[in-house]
Every structure is written in C-alpha cells, then in structure tokens.
Design a protein around this nucleic acid. Structure first.
Lengths: 353, 353
DNA sequence: TTGTAAGCGTTATCAG
DNA sequence: CTGATAACGCTTACAA
C-alpha cells in the first residue's frame, strides 16, 4: 500500500502538499495538483482513513447497533439510516445480533474511535443502563427505547397510540369481546402495545379480562399456538388484536386450522404492516409503521447533535402509525386507497442483485 | 474522551503498561492489572480503534458493498455476512445504493484503512473493472459477479443450473410452450437465468422463440405488465418461467386480472424463493437460493485469504439452488416436505424489535 | 515486571 | 504557494 510519503517522493513535493491536494486546499498551484494527482493515481494511492480520523477526530462513519439485522423490519430501519447517512457522506458500521446488554456494550466499545455517532436499538429494558456513559464519548440516539430515557435523544414508534387506534377500530365495528396476542415478556414494544390495547378497551367501555390476554413471542408459530388457545375460550372472542403482523399471520392460519373463518367468525388485526400483510389471505388490517423514517430521523438527530457544540436539550421524537384497513377485520376496506399498493411497487425492486 | 495517557497517569503507571493490560499481555502483574482496570473503568476508557489499527494494521472490520441494502435478498446476504463475521470478532462497514461503478469505487476508497477485507456485490457488468487495483490493497471477494473473474475470489449462485432445473421441471410436466419473463438488461443474474432457460428448452427438445422471451426488470409491476403481454401471445404459452419471485407474483396477479387461472391455464415458476413465495396464492414454485450462505462463504474466503500470507490460487465457489415445488406449477407438491415451512418459522422471529 | 521511545499515516501549524 | 515538523492515540521493540 502506497502512503502519502511515497506519493510525495515520486512527485517531488512534500507530504504536506500531497495532503493539501487530497483535501482540496485551494492554495496549491494547478501544476502541482495535476502532478500529485497523476502520481497518486499511478500508485493507486488514497489517504488512509484510520490515520486521517486519528488526527481530525472525524470518521465519517456512524455506528448502528441492532438486536438483529434480518427481517423486513430491521432491514428497513437500516435502509432508512443508510439513505440519510449517504446524503451526508457517512458510512455505516453495523452490528447485529446482540444477545444481551453486555454484548451490546461490547460491540459499542469495539466501535470506539471509529465512529462519529451511534444509533442503538435495544428492546431490552436494561439496555439504556448498559450504554450509559457512552453518550459522553459520542452522540447517541436510542431507537424505540420503549421507556422514558432522559439522557439521550430518542426516536420511537407510537406503539400505544397505534394499538389504541387498531383496537378502537375493532370496537367501532361492533366487537365487544376483543382478545390480544401479546409479544415477548421483556420486549418494550410489546408492553406498550398491550397498554394501548387496555386503554382502548377502557375508553370504549368494554371490560377487559386477563383471560383475553394471550401469550406470544412475535413469531409466526407462537401466533398459531395463540389461535389454538383463543378458540378454546368461552365465550369465544369475536376479534383479536395481535401485537405484530408475523404472529397475526400465524393466528389466521391457526384459526383456519380450527375451522373458523376470518373475518366472519373472528376478526383479526396486526401491527407493523410488513409486506406480507398485504398478501395474506385475507389481507391483514394493521397499524402501519414508517420504519425507514425511524432510521432517517435518528440520523438527522445525530448529525444535528454533532453540529451544535453545546449539548442542548435532548430530543424525543415519536413517529405516528397509520391504521391500514384490509379484509381481515371485516370492515369494508377503501378499495383504492391502500397506501401499500404504491409502496409495494417501489420498495421491492430487484430482490436478487 | 479519556486517552491511554490519562489512565496511565491516574494509575501511576506508564502508557505501555496500560496498553499491555488491554492487550491481555500475560507479563503484567495481577496487582497492576487490577489497578489499571479500575482506573480505566472509572474513566470510561477504551482504546481508540483508529489509533490501534493505524499501528497494528488490522481493523477487525470488513467492508460490505451492495447495490442496495433493502429487501429480503440483500437483507439475508448481510445477515449471513454478519453471522460469520461475528464469530471471528469482525464488524461490518456497510455501504449500499451504488448507482454505478464510479459510486462503487468511491465508496471503496472511503473505506481505505478502515477494513481488513471487502465483500462486493455489483450486478453491473463493468463493476469488476472498476474495482480492479483494489484487490492489491486488501483481500476482496466478489459476490455473484455473473461473469468469469479471474483475479479475485468469487462466490456465486448457480443461476444457469437453477433456471435449467425449473424449466426442465415445467417441461417434464408436459408443457411444450414455455415463456420466460426476463430481468433487467444489464443485470448479470438475469442474463444467466435466461441462458439456463434457453439451455433447458434445447435439452428438452422444445423449440424456443424470441417471442416467448418477455421483458421485465425484477419489479412486481413489470411482472404484471409481462402477464398482459403473455396473454396476447398466440398460441398462448401454457407455462412461464419468471426470472425472480417478485415478478412472478406480479405475473400471477396479472394473469388473474386477465381471467386466467394459475396453474390450470398457465403454470408459473419463479426464482429466489423469497418468503412471500410461500404465501402467494397459489404458492409459488421456485428455485430456492441459500442466500445467507452466500454471505457466509464470502467471509470464509476473505478470512482464509487474510490468514495465508501468499495469495494462493483464486477460489470460485458456486452455490447450488434447490427446486421447491408448490402449487403454481400444477405439479402435486410433496405435502410434508416443504423446506420453507421450517425456515419460515425460524427465520422470521420478531420483526418489530 | 515495567518504562522509554520510535513509529503507524495522516493533518495542522508554523515559517519561509 | 510550499516545506518542516509537531501532534493524534496507540503498540511494540528494547532497556532497565
């Protein structure tokens, strides 16, 4: 690998001049610029990023820490981050699959000195505690923390309000016995969606009951299991709010296996609006989350924090969800206004390469 | 940000000792180790990665350059890379959305000095030329180059063989008028799948025809358009091989709109086996690609190349596809042996957080 | 077992 | 306009 010294020697100038050329310093004469560029190209030289950031204290990279890197949801979060970061010339140092908060802290430490800011999504309740102290080193934005975090910027999904809207929709359709399939116990999104469900029942004057709150873990198979539990309830619920779409698809499949029709016998609604929701049979009513916006806003907050020297007050953004009515809840969906139709066509370009 | 000097001063030792502690050098006395660790923890100190890699010449990071970061396919490629990289303690510097080869080269330059190796996927035909010269700086693996590349390691999908198998399957079901919906013109995957289609027709003794080769661009909507073109063909094909699943779903939707039944009137088969293929109505026959393995193998080659000092001969791996028979082709699918059933349950855990 | 000091490849601050 | 030279934060001989 050629270094700045090789280029300087070959071009007959000092390393300072070579550096100036690569930093677009306007003081260098055109003759010198051309000479240096020619030599650099010939030697395949490009400034070493590590050395550069060591002295400038800027890396033009953002850290991204997610619990998991796969699946429509996370994939779109990353996409949102990538798009926004690219605009500002930032690259992404990504790390997924953090089993626990210790793994998270470990990954964050490994990024030390390589990033200008970091975006963290950790559904664990103790994650904010684990990364405390890091925010003093570089700007940090928490994605969807699920709890009130005071000492750093956050961007969240309106889980409560979204769930509230979905359940209220079911209630307005005339259902008065509405079950819920919950998410994982320690998952904070799941917790907030449960709160929204309970509040909606309260606000609609419908009595809740512990028996109506079925267990689930966000997987499709847990949805199938929940459906089996649901059909055994007596009296049987006429509607069910499922805490995410993957489970909702499992629930519909389970209900079908039990000989029940959706939505005639049981109305079903989910949360997230993953692409498959539109293709499920029947198409799934759900709360649409603008996932990529989550990432975009995080980058915006991060870069804003970087620019302003003084910390300033912490920002806490909450992104609203949109109720998407399809066949699974039994309401007549607005035929022409499915927002997913448009998104589907755009977002799924070229799966293979 | 505390530096190694702060820790050394506070702990009353030299910076060399602090360095030794953080590099698990066994020569340091236990007393000193404890003292240093205590001070470091107190100051929230962690070695600066940029400085570290500047002198060690190792970054513990791999570059990942993809044309796009979103969608099931790329998402799973990244996941495979992440999983394999994590095992070896590597982080990922990811960059997506490269409009052209120049953007690709640009992104690669920006990673200079920050990575120990790089994985590049670029469907453009001129991409290998654009990144030539980089492979001398650090190990490079090309993903699915679509053409023979001699001067670096490659991992590819068996596009030809996969397409050949799908089309042969259609031929064996008795179809003798089989159309294809092609992918984007300059896309090399699409090109190879077309070759496989043509070869399969030849090998089955079925005459091909330019009219049977319909245009497409890998998007769902282009599939719908292709379906419209297909129904106007005379005589109408009784089967169609679609170069990817997204388009295939569009094709089925388009055929339905034209009043044709799948598979009774037209048998349909796709390529990729995206998750939705299983949920489409009817479920889609397709060639399954083990996408995450693509990423895993790339990491394996990269780390292998790093270890061996001498370059050694270039490796060229080709990952086979698996024919997955579902309802859309009209064959009776093996009821119990759908490999996706298992994958679906595992792979789609926890979409939201 | 510990400390001193020489880099790693840049950029930034001075002089000239 | 250009050239020395001192950082940046760390690892690693070599010395003690």
């Amino acid at each position: 690998m050629a270094t700045i010294r090789d280029v300087a020697r070959e071009a007959g100038v000092s390393i300072a001049t070579v550096s100036r050329v690569f930093n677009d310093s306007s003081v260098v004469s055109e003759r010198t610029v051309n000479a240096v560029r020619a030599v650099a190209a010939h030697l395949h030289y490009w400034p070493n990023g590590a050395a550069r950031s060591l002295i400038t204290n800027r890396t033009h990279a953002l850290g991204v820490l997610l619990p998991e890197i796969y699946g429509e949801f996370f994939s779109e979060v990353i996409r949102g981050i990538d798009l926004a970061a690219r605009v500002h010339g930032f690259q992404l140092l990504v790390s997924g699959s953090h089993a626990d908060s210790e793994a998270l802290a470990e990954a964050m430490r490994a990024m030390s000195g390589r990033i200008d800011g970091v975006i963290v999504m950790a559904p664990d309740a103790d994650a904010p505690a684990a990364i405390r102290g890091f925010s003093s080193r570089c700007p940090l934005v928490l994605l969807n923390p699920g709890q009130d975090v005071e000492d750093c910027d956050t961007v969240s999904i309106a889980n409560d309000e979204g769930a509230h809207e979905v359940v209220t929709h079911l209630a307005r359709l005339g259902h008065s016995r509405i079950a819920i399939v919950r998410g994982p116990a320690r998952n904070l999104d799941a917790e907030r969606r449960l709160q929204g469900y309970r509040a909606a029942l309260r606000d609609s004057g419908i009595p809740g009951a512990p028996g109506l709150e079925l267990a689930g873990d966000f997987t499709e198979s847990s949805g199938e299991a929940a459906a089996a539990a649901l059909v055994r309830l007596d009296p049987r619920p006429t509607a069910v709010f499922v805490a995410n779409d993957h489970m909702a698809i499992g629930v519909m499949s389970g209900l079908r296996d039990a000989g029940l029709r959706v939505p005639e016998d049981v109305a079903v609604a989910g949360f997230d609006d993953i692409a498959m929701a539109r293709y499920a049979t029947p198409a799934l009513t759900t709360a649409r989350v603008n996932t990529s916006l989550l990432g975009e806003r995080a980058v915006a907050l991060l870069l804003h924090a970087r620019r302003s020297a003084s910390p300033g007050p912490r920002q806490h953004e909450v992104l609203p969800t949109t109720l998407v009515v399809r066949r699974s809840c039994g309401a007549k969906p607005p035929r022409s206004a499915d927002p997913l139709r448009r998104r589907g066509a755009k977002a799924f370009r070229g799966p293979a390469t």
